[in-house]
Structures are given as structure tokens and as C-alpha cells.
Amino acid sequence: MNAESSVRGEVHELSYAESIRDAMDIALGSDERVVLMGEDIGVYGGAFQVTGSLVHKYGEDRVMDTPISELGGAGVAVGAALTGLRPIFEFQFSDFSTLAMEQIVNQAAKLRYMLGGAVSVPLVMRLPSGSGTGAAAQHSQSLEAWYGHVPGLKVAQPSTPRDAKGLLLAALEDPDPVLIFEHKLLYKMKGPVPSGYYTTPIGKAAVRREGTDLTIAANSIMALKAEEAAKTLADEGIDAEVIDLRTVRPIDRETVLASVRKTGRLLCVYEGVKTLGVGAEVSAMVAESDAFDFLDGPIVRLGGAECPIPYNPKLEEAVVPQVPAIIRAARDLANGAI
């Protein structure tokens, strides 16, 4: 489980959305039990055109348009997973999963435990997430910490086309419910994606850039912003290590702790609301561990502002961490100025 499973075949430039579709295509083509469920994922191709034309290839029985019934739809997916199918359930926006909290949190996450291990719920849910599209408060949230708080769920957040495919295929192999938060701003981003089947391990962070002066632990799109910030910091002589958490439950303690033991400084960057967010967990993880002894400055968190995502583009940009803010925080931390 520690490395991307062996990759054979060629590498293509695919967008994040295409890469997810590629994964679903492979899954539908190789396993009769796999069905896609979601609102407008058929001929419409999905709200973000992720399922695209898969319905034409596999038919409406395999690529199922659901009514606008998030709770019922999620519950049907739970029941189907419980009894032999491998559903991939798409929420149109991760915000709408709040309508299905009951089925996700009370049922999918807990059934195995409540029944003493007698069942598994091999369910994959895809949740388009995050701000930056001007869709305002009810279509822009980052709710990964909510679900990451629930034992029984696994929560992944790919930040590259390659990981988007690998994590989805890994989620399908996983016997337990996996929620994949896909950042909406990444759907069009291109990157190298191996053709054919491979998996990216759930629970393993990626060190995107090695460095010695501070550790930036980030999730989803923030990992990319952190990488960009690290380039500027390098010009200033600050050598930042960037960790893309990739999954927040299970969270890869060891990679983070090893990095902090090396750098002595930790900056957490995440788009979700700062309070009680992913960065709180990462910070506490370090504070509770032996890596604490290596800290040579306070732990710093950059998270979303304590407000809903606003509509106005300037405000929208201001309420989530951006590259200049990451640079400032990293610089101050590395220079011992905070």
C-alpha cells in the first residue's frame, strides 16, 4: 500500500476530469458490478462533464441518472454496495451531500461496525468541491473535515490528474466507503496520466517538493498553491518541503512527522474553514508526537475564513488561502519572525 501500484503502458496528457472518466471507464469495462449513479450524469454528462459520454458506451442501467434525491440516491447506493454492486455515486456539488448526511454518516460509515463486521459497504462517492467558480455559499464549500471526522469513512482529495485516476481506482478496490473530494477548479487542469489500470494508495501523502527549512502540509488545490509558493520561496533562499496529504482519513502521519523532524517548522494550508479543520488535525498530530521536540517555531495554519464563501470575486479570493499569503506565512515562519 505504500507506493503507486505498478504502472504499465503509456503516459498521456489528460485533464483531471478526463482522468477521472478514464478511471470510471476502466472500472465499468472490467467489472459488471460497477454502476455510476448521480444527477444528470447520463446524456448531460455530469454537471462538470466528468461522466461525459459514458452513458452511450455502457447504457442507462450502468450510468444511472437519479432523481434529484440526494438522501435517497445516496441510500440506494449504500444498499446496493451492501448487496453486491460497486456503485460510484456522484454528488453534483459536495455541498449537496449535506442532504445525504444521514445515509453517509449514520449508515454507510457505521453499518459494518454496528453489525459486528458482518457486512462491508464498498461505496465510492465523488464530491465536486471548493471555491473559485463564483457559485457562492451553497456550491463552494470544502467539507472534507466533516467527513474525515467519521470513523468508517475514508476521505481522499486528489490534486493531480494522475492521483485523481489512481485514487478512484484504489477507492473501488477498497471494501469500505471512500469519499473523493474533487476540486472543481482542477477539472480542466492537464497532467500526465498513465494509461491502463493503476492505483494510488489511500492513506499515503505525496512529498511534492523536498526541502529543509519548513514543511508545508496542504490538501487538494492548496498543495498546488503551496508548490507554486515554494518556487518563489526558493528564490529567496527558503527551502520549503511541500506535502500533498492526498487523503485526510486515513491521514499519513509518518510522512508529515518525518518532514517536521527534518525541517522543524510546520505550515498547514487548507481551503476548508480554518477552525476545526484539516490543519487542526495535522497540527495536533505533530504536537502530540515526538516531532514536537523538533519544532523550532510555532505551528501556523492558513485556512478558509470564518464565513460562507462570498459571491463577489474579490471577496471569494480573499477568504481562502492564496499563493502570496502562503509565501508570506512561510517566509515569516522560516525566518523566525512569527
Partner: peptide, 27 residues
């Protein structure tokens, strides 16, 4: 003092009181 500074000082038998801190608030 930072945890790293404390650990280093303890390891080398140095009293932190004798060290000037260069960080904010004399850390």
C-alpha cells in the same frame, strides 16, 4: 524557547537563561 531549542540546550547542557533569543518576544 522553541521545543527544538529546549531539546538542543538540554542535550548540550546549556542553560536557556543564558541565551539571548532572536525570535519574536525574545523566543
Amino acid at each position: 524557547a522553541t521545543p527544538a531549542a529546549r531539546a538542543l540546550a538540554a542535550q548540550r547542557g546549556i542553560d536557556l537563561k543564558n541565551i539571548g533569543g532572536s525570535g519574536p518576544r525574545g523566543r
